[in-house]
């Protein structure tokens, strides 16, 4: 993404007041209580056990830990996680997953 287009995007977003996840491919998390988590704009699974689920993101990773975790449904950009969610940790790129 060139500098100009990025600036253009930033500008349109400011003007039109659009949500950021649409324009910058940022992840969007929807947590329902602690038993269902819906993540959009992920980039794949890195690690998956019933206690820990690490998802790759555009600029880092998302570590979800809990118990009895399972993926209820998965698509290329969306994933629905069921189970008891205890921690959600955002790891910046370069940080330890």
């Amino acid at each position: 993404m060139s500098r100009i287009s990025r600036n253009l995007q930033k500008w349109t977003q400011d003007i039109l007041d659009l949500p950021q996840d649409l324009l910058f491919d940022l992840p969007r998390l929807t947590l329902i209580g602690n038993h269902e988590l819906h993540i959009e704009n992920h980039r794949g699974v890195i690690q998956f056990t019933s206690e820990k689920l690490v998802l790759s993101l555009n600029d880092g990773a998302l570590e979800i830990s809990g118990s009895g975790l399972s993926i209820r449904a998965i698509q290329s950009t969306e994933v629905t996680v069921a189970g008891k969610v205890q921690h959600i940790q955002y790891i910046e790129r370069g940080g330890k997953p």
């Binding site: 794949g44 699974v45 998956f48 399972s70 993926i71 209820r72 449904a73 998965i74 290329s76 994933v79």
Partner: peptide, 17 residues
């Protein structure tokens, strides 16, 4: 994990993983 990723990229509907 990469198998699951491959599944999701192939747009194969799977559920209750």
């Amino acid at each position: 994990p990469s198998f699951i990723n491959a599944l999701s990229e192939a747009a194969t509907p799977v559920w209750e993983i």
